[in-house]
Design a binder for these strands. Structure first.
Lengths: 228, 228
DNA sequence: GTCCGGAATACTGTATGCTAAAACCACGGG
DNA sequence: CCCGTGGTTTTAGCATACAGTATTCCGGAC
């Protein structure tokens, strides 16, 4: 077979072979287990077991656990081990509060620094999300939502803010998924108004809309968790 | 407020024997080397060399480097190694911008949730900082400043916000030290007004004062770096 | 029956060895 | 003299081995 020429991929779109560090693969694997609930909050994660289950040695597992701790997915008790983080309602509330803060500021900056291309991309994502919504594809809606917010923070032009928001949003994902269903339609209407404000470079309005938007999500989560 | 009360706080305030994991010691050691400038930005950090220099094996060094990467002190290129992060003026500006955001919100919440004890502690820290200022002890002034800000974010009652602000402040420390001298006096006057606002539970004023305060620091940094 | 103490156990923390790949350098050809 | 190429060396990534410590369970004494 001809592995030399792949004209469609450009010359160096991606280095042909990028050996993904094993620790990253392990990180993703464990994170998936946590999010899907296969590993329950409070559960003791034993390095040896994880290593055997994933077919690697303890070393990559250890490093992955350190990364997971940094993102608050697990709690690491020195001398004992790693435990799946137990999210409390209080923490969820605080997390969503901080998220509101960061997202609102991102929206403001994104509006001020908005470009035609950027807005076009936002509208594109909006459209795909709308389609997913109509198709009742919850998975795709959540993904589009994440993409939209990520794009807005990226458009803020503040890399530090972008990084921080991404960090928070990863953690929010834990709580977000269950409420996504019930809030789908309204959330996307709000997105539409938000994109308009950004297109008009109206920072204050964009900030306000985003604040309201994330506050709605927060309320929605609180109501939802109260049901249980 | 729903903090589970520990009646015997005096007894087990700190577990008598806390064997600090070696990785943490190594983390602190390397961080110190970076902050003091002994390890220059962009420099290639070789695991083996660090391990020998610190008298430990490579393993704790590796883990410490991962932690340092998470805090943006080093850049970790997969397959090659760790490099001391090169801070750019642009990044510093963005960092200080985010800091303003987080600190302002912390101040607001701290004011709203302020208690007599908390305010008393703030005043205590303020006094010690003032003393250090008069004694021209820059080191102590910086320390008191960090302590004061840390206390305020702690008083916000939002653990997530607290953690995030701490993370940002650690990074700011890199840029902060050189400008601390020139800004000492004025900064402490601003602290005084801020503490008053918190004591009066005036959230809006506290937030505004903190915003102005951190913006001054930002300006000060920009002016200072422009001199070079 | 309950409580204290000690040994067995299981796990993390640390050290070291091995492998594969990336960078550097010297050499040779144009 | 410059550029390409091969070999050499260095270094990170991963696996494994060893040691120290917290936990737990069982047995005996009060």
């Amino acid at each position: 077979m001809s592995l030399t020429s792949k004209p469609s991929e450009g010359i160096a779109a991606r280095q042909v072979a990028r050996p993904v560090p094993l620790r990253e693969t392990v990180y993703e694997a464990i994170l998936e287990l946590i999010i899907t609930g296969e590993l329950k909050p409070g559960q003791h994660l034993v390095e040896k077991e994880l290593a055997e289950a994933l077919g690697v040695s303890r070393q990559p597992v250890r490093e992955a656990l350190q990364w997971l701790q940094k993102d608050e997915w697990v709690d690491l008790r020195p001398g004992y081990g790693a435990f799946v983080h137990s999210p409390t309602p209080e923490e969820a509330d605080q997390l969503l509060g901080v998220r509101t803060l960061l997202e609102a500021e991102s929206a403001r900056l994104a509006a001020v620094n908005s470009t035609k291309d950027g807005v076009a991309e936002l509208k594109q994502i909006y459209k795909s999300g709308l389609a997913a919504l109509k198709a009742d594809d919850v998975e795709a809606v959540v993904a589009a939502n994440a993409e939209l917010h990520a794009k807005i923070t990226e458009m803020s032009g503040n890399k530090v803010l972008n990084e921080l928001a991404a960090q928070i949003n990863r953690r929010v994902r834990w709580y977000h998924t269950p409420v996504a269903k019930s809030r789908g339609k309204q959330a996307w209407d709000e997105h539409s108004a938000l994109i308009d404000a950004i297109a008009k470079k109206d920072g204050d309005t964009a900030s306000r809309l985003m604040r309201e938007h994330t506050e709605h999500t927060r309320k929605s989560y609180l109501d939802h968790s109260a049901e249980d």
